[in-house]
């Protein structure tokens, strides 16, 4: 069994993601296979480009079912960039609303800024108690996007442990990363964020053995 599977659904610059995992001494495979994605200790959902197009690709590999079943079993999933955005209920692009995987309430929308895309390194307002940003809370991470989720609030928060939500700002505040039990996600690209990004991947890999 592989430690990590990177879900292959035709989207995302996966070469650096694969290598970033390998650099941290974990075995990794790019796969679209249902069972492999289900059984790996950790699953990474990459994503680049349009929300709607990524959703189509994810549906073809039954990603919704894979992710649901993994999360119920407390098996870690990490979404990156559009791979994070699709975890929300819906995404707005060019006036068209697309349905997301709906793991989290909230919508993904264009950032309200005079200059877009939000492109480059930015710092993170790290929430207290973060494992994701352990030892790298002061570092900067590489963003390349125009859309983001601004808010994540569970309607009935009395029954669940609230997720840790980390923010970044580009003229307005948006969600840069989330730690929600076995489901983690980053709007930025850890695989393009130098040593700090590799450390973040390592922080995630450490949770694979705990869970």
């Amino acid at each position: 069994m592989n430690d990590v599977v990177v879900l292959d659904y035709g989207f995302g610059n996966v070469r650096s993601v694969l290598r970033a995992v390998e650099k941290n001494k974990a075995s990794v495979k790019l796969s679209a296979d249902f069972n492999e994605a289900l059984e790996a200790k950790g699953l990474i959902i990459p994503g680049v480009g349009a929300f709607a197009a990524c959703m189509k690709g994810l549906e073809q590999v039954r990603a919704n079912e894979i992710i649901d079943r993994r999360l119920v079993a407390n098996k870690p999933v990490l979404g990156i960039c559009v791979g994070m955005q699709v975890m929300f209920e819906s995404g707005w692009e060019h006036g068209i609303k697309s349905e997301g995987l709906g793991q989290w309430p909230g919508i993904v929308d264009q950032i309200n800024a005079p200059v877009l895309p939000h492109m480059g390194f930015n710092s993170i307002e790290v929430a207290i108690g973060s494992k994701m940003f352990s030892e790298i809370a002061q570092e900067q991470f590489y963003f390349l996007h125009s859309f983001a989720a601004k808010k994540l609030e569970f309607r009935d928060s009395s029954k669940i442990i609230n997720p840790l939500i980390h923010y970044a700002t580009h003229f307005e505040q948006f969600i840069a990363a989330v730690e929600n039990g076995p489901l983690w996600a980053t709007q930025f690209h850890p695989e393009k964020s130098g040593p700090a990004g590799l450390k973040l991947i390592n922080n995630w890999l450490e949770t694979l053995d705990e869970k």
């Binding site: 492109m119 480059g120 390194f121 710092s123 963003f143 970044a168 700002t169 580009h170």
Partner: peptide, 8 residues
């Protein structure tokens, strides 16, 4: 907390 200028 703002986007860094890049050196390329």
């Amino acid at each position: 907390m703002t986007l860094s200028k890049r050196v390329i």
